[in-house]
């Protein structure tokens, strides 16, 4: 599940509580700065400091006791060794495929689930529930269902005469198979965001459109699509961040295999860590950090820039 509140990404609206307080001279502020103290210590020691340290250690050959400075050697290795480069490319493919599918399917399901249909409560629950289930459990279950010969998916496809691919054991399909499962598990979150977005569109727009003779298709392209744009922005950014950082589903389903065909940066980081190449592993962390920042920051600026109203 993405651990990012959507509020973080939405433009803020000023409320009465936002206005600056009147200056009270000589009276101590009732909002004590020491409230920050304990959280700041935990946050700085366990998150900020290691992040800064990672920039240094990524330039070293490191065994936890001694760090030998080797310049950009680790990064060069990342871009030269085929299995590591593969991880970089796969990360991009995985993030784009998952976030693209989540936008399309999330919007589609969101539109269906905001219209007046039967069993809406059931459908909403059933689409959302996988978001809350253990990723490892989902990974193991689908690894079994995707078994090339005895798995339920290929057996069902065979019933209608389709020869299913070998999914996780086929190098061409392994990464995509995991991405599909990621979408299955995560589309509920995208749907919920779209539902909130569509519900917040004023009914008058639809009434006016109806007067002008717009059908469901016009409604979708002319009203829902542009006015649900903030929801689209949120879904794209959330799933890009999640997709770029994703590790546990891939690790549970393929461990990067077959070969290195479904390795992503996060799994490379873990493999190098396990192998004791701490400098190389940390360089992977820095690359992932740069990748996320370089993609997400400009994108969120670009997408939030345009006002719809």
């Amino acid at each position: 599940m993405a651990t990012i509140p959507a509020t973080a990404l939405a433009p803020k609206r000023a409320t009465s509580a936002d206005r600056p307080p009147k200056k009270r001279k000589g009276i101590k502020s009732p909002y004590s700065m020491w409230f920050y103290l304990i959280p700041a210590i935990i946050y700085v020691v366990l998150f900020i400091a290691p992040t800064f340290a990672s920039f240094f250690y990524s330039l070293t050959r490191w065994n936890l006791f001694t760090a030998q400075f080797i310049g950009f050697g680790n990064f060069v290795e990342f871009f030269q060794e085929q299995n590591l480069t593969q991880g970089l490319i796969n990360t991009g493919i995985y993030a784009v495929v998952t976030s693209g599918l989540k936008v399309v399917l999330g919007m589609l399901i969101g539109v269906v689930l905001t219209s007046q249909i039967i069993a809406r409560g059931y459908l909403r629950s059933v689409v959302f529930f996988p978001v809350l289930v253990s990723t490892i459990g989902v990974g193991i279950t689908f690894a079994v269902l995707m078994n090339p010969t005895s798995g339920l998916i290929n057996k069902s496809l065979a019933l209608v005469g389709i020869q299913g691919p070998a999914w996780l054991t086929d190098p061409a399909w392994a990464l995509l198979s995991v991405a599909f499962v990621d979408v299955w598990k995560g589309v509920g979150l995208a749907t919920v965001i779209y539902i909130a977005g569509i519900v917040s569109i004023p009914v008058e727009y639809f009434e006016a459109a109806k007067m002008d003779g717009a059908g469901p298709f016009k409604n979708f392209t002319q009203i829902i699509l542009p006015l649900a744009r903030p929801a689209t922005v949120t879904v794209i950014i959330l799933s890009l961040i999640g997709g770029l950082r994703s590790f546990d589903l891939i690790w549970a389903m393929t461990r990067g295999g077959p070969g290195f065909t479904s390795d992503v940066i996060a799994s490379v980081i873990y493999k190098q860590y396990q192998a004791g190449f701490y400098g190389l592993s940390t360089a992977g962390n820095v690359i992932l950090f740069l990748l996320v920042t370089v993609i997400v920051m400009p994108l969120s600026w670009f997408l939030n820039r345009k006002e719809v109203y």
Partner: peptide, 14 residues
Amino acid sequence: GLIIPPAVVPTITV
């Protein structure tokens, strides 16, 4: 904190 992936090995040393 929402965007940056935690740096694993430095956190372990801390």
